[in-house]
Design a protein around this nucleic acid. Sequence first.
DNA 1: TTGCTAAACGGAACACTGTTCCGTATTGTC
DNA 2: GACAATACGGAACAGTGTTCCGTTTAGCAA
Lengths: 199, 199
Amino acid sequence: MSEEADAVVAGEPPGKRVRADAQRNTDALLTAAAEVFAASGVDAPVRQITAKAGVGAGTLYRHFPQRSDLIAAVYRHEVDACADAAPALAAEHDPLEALTRWLWRFTGFIGTKHGLSTALHSGDPAYAGLPAYFQQRFVPVLRDLLDAAAEAGEVRADVDPYDLLRATANLTRPAQDDQGYTRRMVTLLIDGLRYGARK
Amino acid sequence: MSEEADAVVAGEPPGKRVRADAQRNTDALLTAAAEVFAASGVDAPVRQITAKAGVGAGTLYRHFPQRSDLIAAVYRHEVDACADAAPALAAEHDPLEALTRWLWRFTGFIGTKHGLSTALHSGDPAYAGLPAYFQQRFVPVLRDLLDAAAEAGEVRADVDPYDLLRATANLTRPAQDDQGYTRRMVTLLIDGLRYGARK
DNA sequence: TTGCTAAACGGAACACTGTTCCGTATTGTC
DNA sequence: GACAATACGGAACAGTGTTCCGTTTAGCAA
């Protein structure tokens, strides 16, 4: 799900192959937009994005007719990247460490979302499915991490993944520019989880 | 406090009299901006405001060098208007009715604040004093209304005005375009206040 | 390999912003 | 009524988002 290019409308059954240059440019735009959004927020000038992607304005508008399409695509892309990081962490570290590291990773994701929450509430239909997507991708991932840690006796077993997700996101918002603070708070949260574990 | 024009920086002890035309234009701009902001949000085009005020762009920028100055001035103006409405209501109606009507009036104030809350969190120093001003003007007003209603035995006496203010504002936000909903909810809130009153 | 066509490209051009500047008009005073 | 000082308005500038179309390229077939 996280692989393959995000097509404009994300679904064209007729086997029309996507041209290689089109694919390349879509990717370049997504990457460039992600960087620019992180640095300057989602209201950053379009030309800044096209310049960084080495692409003309026309190209951007062909792939993403509305600005909101680009934003939504970038968001999906980053949700995927963050969610997909979990299995690797779970394989490399013991359950508690994997959980901790993934939550840190998640705070990084949230921290780059300047102005996105505002855009999300703008009523633009392009964003309609985004919160659901967010939940749909992250909740199972976090549930797995939590279950593994609980099974290892590292944390309590009665924590709802969605609650923890929201709590972490809220913890991060006021201090998106202070890594240290966020880490301390997330660590505290995890210490809270450990309280009452059987180990 | 609600009278007299909001000077640019709101305080020039040296008795430099303000020219009558300047005063007139400042007022016209404030009125026009309030209408435009209510209709199109605080990001509405400047020319729309100057046109409605029958004024040139230069005039706007002389009185309000930063856009945020205009927004802040409009906001103060409306806070004043809303707060000043209370004494009249208290004189015309019995305490409970006055309280109810003023809260409705207050929801009207909140409902027109499209995008203002976003602007407020932008970190612009021009907005720094606004939340405090909000509280400073509204809390005493609401406290008086509550006290009067409590003294008449219409509502409980243990409600914090600031809490009620926040609750009402939060109640209103999700349905700024549905008068009916907001009124029902505010009425419910007031019924809650009445519960346990001595009458 | 070469030729051909549909697809995609890029950037100039357009429309619409916020903001500045300055010649002109108005106000208040002597 | 004359004259500074002040304020006015709108043209001009700079920086956006978006469209358009002549040019280039990828992919395919001979």
